[in-house]
Design a protein around this nucleic acid. Structure first.
Lengths: 238, 238
DNA sequence: TCAAAAGTGTTATGATTACACCCATGA
DNA sequence: TCATGGGTGTAATCATAACACTTTTGA
């Protein structure tokens, strides 16, 4: 396929990028008890004015994980983010103009670190609660639904939920995170005991300030502790 | 990129296929207590004489799952096989001649159904026990290792192991399957009770014949029972 | 003092584990 | 009769769930 044709057809095709393959990212955040997703409103091309997942092309000499990290950095300014591949989505007519296969990624970001940084492809960027997700372009609703299912699985098998919380958090905040993502109600005393028994959390010997009730202890998740435990055969299962 | 160049470069490039994207399949079988993988020995091209995962190109108007099913059918003659996508593998230099991203799939087949059917790309096809896997072409060892980890997870969360067993099996055969894949030893009485309590198995009121010990009851896995249970909120967890 | 969340204690139930033991069958 | 796997029973331990209760703090 001729490059110029593609260049005209595609919305922001870059000359040093691979043809027919893109990356789309589901970026999750957690704010005020709600799971949210970062969407972009397309500024040009056939999807102008419509919301979709942030994404882009893969450079010819760039690994796909590297491409996903780059796209995330370009969009959010954030480095060292939790990011994992979901899978490839390859319906023959998922993209209306020509055949494109996209590789889905999902990222978990701490909202406290996030500063919006709209890229050249997006006129507008916004966080949407899961229940307020609009109709998205192409198959992006499918990718999003799949990523939520995947997140629900992963969060029970690996301690990745901490990537959505501030560095310091209370046990109840952590519980609310699990409740929101898994869509269940949990028992506070039981949750406390269960998570504390895992010995994954570092007790910071600090307390909340400025809350109008008894201040809770603050904890942080320590990757090192987790790595030490898993080496000894520990298996996070929630 | 010019088609003719690709045609010469690639080993079996087909004119109506997508460029720069392939599919590779990890096909698992279970025979005499061992987990095995189907490998092909390449007949032509730069990998001539080396073993690798079976794979191929995606047609321009074909979904990626459909492409994986077609490749499997071409290779094994089997239809209606358990097949799921793993993920995409996209290291920039995973393939030595030019940039190709591959989408990994894994399949579970009943060895009793399988009849070898070497395709045009393979001079030789063979089953290899996991501990006898040779050095494979490109990043195929990585794909294989990843798929084993994935299988270990999936088999504990969904009743997919049955796809590796004959239609009728004994409880001990099922237990040996789990032991082999998960790499653990299990307690026979406890395994029996656990699996029977799930009520997923259909008691066939048949027994083994021609065994030199007390004949065991035969069971089969019934997809319908499973679907009925999951609709009511049942969750397979092993 | 009241509301709101922090945090502890207790008990019932069920799942898991470890292991002893009997049964059926062909070589 | 012996080896081999089929199959049942049981008791200890551990995890989970349900819920009552006390503590701390700011408004």
């Amino acid at each position: 396929m001729d490059k110029e044709i593609i260049k005209n057809r595609a919305e922001t095709f870059e000359a040093d990028a691979m043809e027919s393959i893109t990356i789309d990212c589901v970026i999750f955040g957690f704010q005020e008890g709600s799971l949210e997703v970062l969407l972009v409103k397309h500024a040009e091309g056939i999807s102008k004015g419509k919301w979709g997942l942030p994404g882009g092309w893969i450079k010819k000499k760039e690994g796909i994980d590297a491409a996903a990290y780059r796209l995330l950095r370009e969009l959010t300014g954030l480095d060292e983010i939790f990011l994992e591949q979901l899978k490839a989505f390859g319906d023959p007519d998922r993209f209306p103009l020509y055949r494109v296969i996209t590789i889905g990624y999902y990222a978990l970001v701490k909202r406290e670190n996030y500063r919006i940084k709209a890229g050249f492809t997006a006129s507008e960027v916004g966080w949407f609660k899961m229940k307020d997700i609009p109709k998205l372009i192409y198959d992006h609703n499918e990718i999003l639904n799949y990523s939520l299912g995947h997140l629900r699985n992963r969060i029970r098998q690996a301690p990745i939920g901490f990537n959505l919380l501030p560095e310091k958090f209370t046990l109840l905040e952590l519980m609310h995170l699990y409740e929101e993502i898994l869509g269940v109600e949990m028992d506070k005393p039981n949750f406390r005991r269960k998570i504390l028994k895992m010995k994954l959390l570092r007790d910071l010997n600090e307390k909340q300030v400025g809350v109008s009730h008894r201040a809770a202890k603050l904890y942080s998740f320590d990757e090192e502790i987790y790595n030490r435990l898993t080496k000894r055969g520990f298996n996070f299962e929630f």
